[in-house]
C-alpha cells in the first residue's frame, strides 16, 4: 500500500512537471508583457524582475481599445444569432427522421470545416457591392457560416443524449410539441447550451482570417489589431506580448469559468454514445 502511495506521488510530480513544460511557452509570453524593454533583451533571461504595467498602459491608450469593443460586440451578436437560429433546428434534426439527414449532416460539417478562404473570396466580392466591408454587421454574418453549423452540430448531439421520456410525459399532459420543447427540453439542456454558446464565442473571438480580409479600420477586431501592431513595432516585444495577453485574456477567463462544459462541448459530436 505504501509503495502504491509513493508511486502515485511520483506520478503526480511527473505530471506536474509535464504540465509546466507544456505551459512554458504561454507563461513566457505572460512574463514578457510585464518586463521592461531592457529586461526583455537581457541575457541570461531574468526570472526575477520588477514587473511593470507600462506596456499595457501604452497600448491601451491607442486605437487598440476600439478593436476590443469590436471583437466583443461581433462575437456576442454572432453567438446570439447562431443560437437563436440553430437550436430549434438541431432539436428537429435530433427528434425527427428526415430522409435527407445524411446529406444535411455532411453539409453542416463541411460548412464548419471548410477553409475560411472558401467563404472569404465570395463574401469579399459581394460585400463590395453591399457596402458591408469594414462593418460589424458584415463580420456577424460571415461568422454565421461556421457558428450556425457549430450550433446545429453540437446541440444535436446534446439533444440526442437527452432522454425523450420527459417530453413525452408533457405531451400526455396535453402540451404541444412547441411547449414541450420550450418548457421541458430547453431548461434541461442548460449545460449543453452554455458549452455551445461559449464555443461559438471563442471561435468568433479567435477568428483572424475573415477579419483580416473583410475589415480595415472601423470594424477591425482585436486579433488583427495585434498583428498590425506587431508589424509596426518590429522590436517592441513588451508591447506585442501585452497586446497578445489582452487578446487571450477574455478567452482564458471564459474557458476557466466553464471548463467542465467546455471539455464536453469540444468532444461532443465526435463521439456518440
Amino acid at each position: 500500500m505504501n509503495r502504491r502511495a509513493w508511486e502515485r506521488r511520483l506520478l503526480h510530480a511527473a505530471v506536474v512537471g509535464l504540465v509546466l513544460v507544456i505551459l512554458a511557452p504561454f507563461l513566457w509570453l505572460l512574463q514578457m508583457s510585464l518586463k521592461t524593454q531592457a529586461d526583455i533583451f537581457a541575457f541570461p533571461p531574468k526570472l526575477v524582475f520588477v514587473p511593470t504595467l507600462e506596456h499595457y498602459r501604452t497600448i491601451w491608450d491607442t486605437a487598440f481599445r476600439r478593436s476590443f469593443t469590436n471583437s466583443a460586440i461581433v462575437a456576442v451578436l454572432s453567438t446570439a444569432l447562431a443560437m437563436l437560429l440553430g437550436v430549434p433546428g438541431a432539436y428537429a434534426l435530433s427528434r425527427a427522421r428526415f430522409r435527407a439527414a445524411g446529406s444535411l449532416t455532411l453539409w453542416i460539417l463541411v460548412s464548419r470545416m471548410a477553409p475560411p478562404i472558401a467563404f472569404t473570396i465570395p463574401y469579399f466580392l459581394a460585400y463590395r457591392h453591399l457596402g458591408l466591408l469594414d462593418t460589424r454587421t458584415g463580420l456577424v454574418i460571415v461568422y454565421l457560416t461556421f457558428n450556425l453549423s457549430l450550433v446545429v452540430w453540437l446541440m444535436r448531439s446534446f439533444f440526442d443524449a437527452a432522454p425523450r421520456s420527459l417530453e413525452e410525459a408533457a405531451w400526455i399532459d396535453g402540451a404541444s410539441p412547441g411547449q414541450g420543447f420550450v418548457r421541458i427540453v430547453l431548461p434541461l439542456s442548460g449545460p449543453g447550451l452554455a458549452a455551445t454558446a461559449i464555443l461559438c464565442f471563442l471561435y468568433a473571438w479567435n477568428d483572424f482570417f475573415f477579419a483580416l480580409i473583410l475589415t480595415r479600420t472601423e470594424a477591425m477586431t482585436a486579433p488583427v489589431a495585434v498583428v498590425n501592431f506587431m508589424n509596426y513595432e518590429g522590436w517592441e516585444w513588451g508591447k506585442i506580448a501585452a497586446g497578445g495577453t489582452l487578446v487571450m485574456l477574455p478567452v482564458l477567463v471564459f474557458s476557466f469559468v466553464v471548463r467542465k462544459f467546455l471539455v464536453r462541448g469540444l468532444t461532443a459530436g465526435a463521439l456518440r454514445g
Binding site: R216, T217, N228, N231
Partner: peptide, 26 residues
C-alpha cells in the same frame, strides 16, 4: 486625423485590397 502606418508589405497588401473595392475606409 487617425493616421496608422503599417509595415511595408502589410500596408501595400491591405491598401491594394481596399482600393480594389473602391471602398471608403481611408
Amino acid at each position: 486625423v487617425d493616421f496608422a502606418p503599417q509595415a511595408f508589405p502589410v500596408y501595400n497588401q491591405r491598401a491594394d485590397l481596399e482600393l480594389s473595392t473602391q471602398g471608403s475606409a481611408w
